[in-house]
Amino acid sequence: MTTNRIHQKLQEDKKILSIYFTAGYPDLEDTVPILEKLQESGVDMVEIGLPFSDPLADGPTIQESSTRALKNGMTTTKLFDQLKNVRDKIHIPLILMGYFNPMMQYGVERFCVQCAETGIDGLIIPDLPVDVYEEEYKDMFERYSLFNIFLITPQTPDERIRFIDSVSDGFIYMVSSASVTGAKNTFGDVQKQYFERIHALHLKNPQVVGFGISNAETYKAATKLARGAIIGSAFIKTISEKGIEGIPEFIKGIR
């Protein structure tokens, strides 16, 4: 029996559009208004980014949004405050994405408790390796019904993908190419072969593609074989240029 919203969403017979944004950007109090607009616009799932001073896996767009969000005063405590009653209005799956150090300082178990009380469905922690997770945190995350989502890349060997699949719940985050976030991509033969290779592994978890998805064309290419796609940097550019009001048009332009 699972009540996790990610799981329920992935049972539906449709492709998933997921959006990433950095909490506290452009303005500190934008977090919930952005979530409302995204839900209204028909987005299937959202990743809320917890800003970090040193986001190693992110390109310039997300770095800048993080720096700005921190300057605006965003903290882990502040984010949980903002999200306190979010489940009164928001029904789509919510994932928190952030680097491990701020979670450690908050206290990993306390962080999990807060996530569970808030109605967070999953976590993406790019710098928490799968082996450390399995050994030290898996039981804890499961106690709070939190799915931990892992990344794979074109360089990840099949054997390791199977290991990641075995400890994952929800979906596997397929990084489209060897790059940090926000790289300009068109999906060429290399990506197509990679998508096909992963598809042929028949993993237990569905795959959602991220990194380099910026428009209808890349969304379509990414979701041809995978269950969904995640857009981050392109979305952040949109709200920094057009504000929250620009969200419905952006989403409509994707699918």
């Binding site: 040193d54 921190l70 979670m103 300082q105 710098d127």
Partner: peptide, 22 residues
């Protein structure tokens, strides 16, 4: 410094209470 993660390892590092590296 306090225990945390910087540049790929767990060690002592200078950071805010919120875990931002200073």
């Amino acid at each position: 410094g306090h225990k945390g993660i910087i540049h790929g390892c767990k060690t002592l590092l200078m950071q805010t209470d919120d875990g931002q590296i200073t």
